[in-house]
Nucleic acid binder design. Structure first.
Length: 365
DNA sequence: CGCGTTTGACCGGCGC
DNA sequence: GCGCCGGTCAAACGCG
């Protein structure tokens, strides 16, 4: 048979008929380990989650606007405007390189190649459930990490290009790092949608903010959006080939959590289906800058930080704007996300001076 | 019997 | 040009 690439390409090629992701969103996720990995990661180590075993994190929509790789030649439909919703960069095993990628300069909007979203969560479970169905297709030992890295593919839909990598932090094995790549080309459950939205937003920000060169950022910068409920840290890494956003939920000590979950939940990140929906559907922004999430939902469903963060990000345009601003700051690019999602605000980060407990880290590379 | 997981090999990219 | 590393595929095995 055809080479693997072709096979992959074919699969991937299914263009998404329904992408939930906004058009210009591409999310890229990279791993941002405590140090060694550059990409973007979402950390969800919340103490609350750690109680058990399976924290569920929903992160899914990573769109990649890749240029070439994904299209190994097949996707003919890149929809217009530079937004390919479904362009899944996963197509090739490693196609980070943009072959025909023209100079970024030419690319008006999303010059990006691919973005990844990493979520760091504290959990003993082998993996976190994000509301989607995944099938493991490989496992490998990474170089600087004694723990193997597992590769999963979304099986909710036949041609869903979304993949995720799960690996434990070498330093702290209780921390699970999940990286999502690609966009779902099928409808997602509410829970998954929340994650997807988050990822998309993050990715969008990265993309929009990283229009310029971010190479200068060797380290990841982190800024903290003001999250009243959950303190998540977003870190943008610019050292990797792809922009990566890392959400760190591991830093949130339950102590400070506004809504501390006492729920006996199993060990998974409970994806608040309705919670997310509600959040998404009802932007309840109590504060001018941050959306306030009713403790009720969280408390009742022992919502995990992930959820919270995700929902917040997804539903909070401010967050997006903040990210964009932060990114711009890092990169020195004064543009706010223009081509990114719809929600990019003007560009001012509400950023708070200090981070609470958890932080969301976005890294753009 | 079907589905999912596991393991090894192969491919391609990147760095030295 | 060579070697290393990451990532994916494909076949086999196990479990439901």
């Amino acid at each position: 048979m055809a080479t693997h690439k072709q096979l992959q390409g074919n699969r991937v090629e299914q263009k998404g008929e329904l992408n939930d992701t906004p058009s210009s969103i591409m999310s890229a996720q990279h791993f941002m380990d405590p140090r060694p990995r550059p990409p973007v990661t979402l950390d969800v180590n919340d103490p609350s989650v750690s109680d058990d075993k399976t924290p569920e994190v929903l992160v899914s929509s990573t769109n990649t606007v890749e240029t070439k790789s994904q299209m190994l030649g097949k996707r003919a439909s890149i929809e217009d405007a530079g937004l390919d919703q479904t362009s899944q960069s996963w197509g090739s095993p490693k196609s980070p390189k943009l072959e025909h990628e023209k100079p970024d300069e030419q690319i008006p909007e999303v010059p990006f190649r691919k973005a990844r979203v990493s979520v760091r969560a504290r959990s003993e479970a082998p993996l976190i459930s994000d509301g989607c169905q995944w099938r493991k297709y490989g496992q490998k030992m990474a170089k600087g990490n004694p723990c193997p890295r597992a590769y999963y593919r979304c099986t909710m839909a036949g041609g869903c290009p979304v993949r995720k990598q799960v690996q434990r932090c070498a330093e702290d094995k209780t921390i699970l790092i999940t990286t999502y790549e690609g966009n779902h080309n099928h409808p997602l459950p509410p829970a998954a949608t929340a994650m997807a939205s988050t990822t998309s937003a993050a990715a969008a920000m990265l993309l929009s903010g990283s229009t310029t060169s971010k190479e200068g950022l060797s380290s990841s910068s982190s800024f903290y959006p003001s999250f009243p409920y959950a303190s998540a840290m977003a870190t943008l890494s610019a050292s990797a080939p792809f922009p990566t956003i890392t959400l760190d939920l591991t830093q949130g000590p339950n102590t400070t959590m506004p809504f501390h979950r006492t729920s006996p939940s199993p060990a998974t990140f409970p994806l608040p289906l309705h919670g997310s929906q509600q959040l998404l559907g009802h932007p309840m922004y109590a504060s001018p800058r941050l959306p306030a999430i009713p403790p009720v939902q969280l408390g009742q469903r022992n919502a995990s930080m992930v959820e919270t963060v995700t929902a917040a990000i997804a539903s909070d345009p401010n967050f997006t704007a903040a990210l964009a601003a932060a990114i711009s700051t890092f990169m020195g690019t004064p543009r706010s996300g223009d081509g990114a999602n719809n929600a990019n605000a003007p560009g001012r980060i509400p950023g708070s001076p200090q981070l609470p407990q958890s932080c969301t880290t976005f890294s753009t590379n």
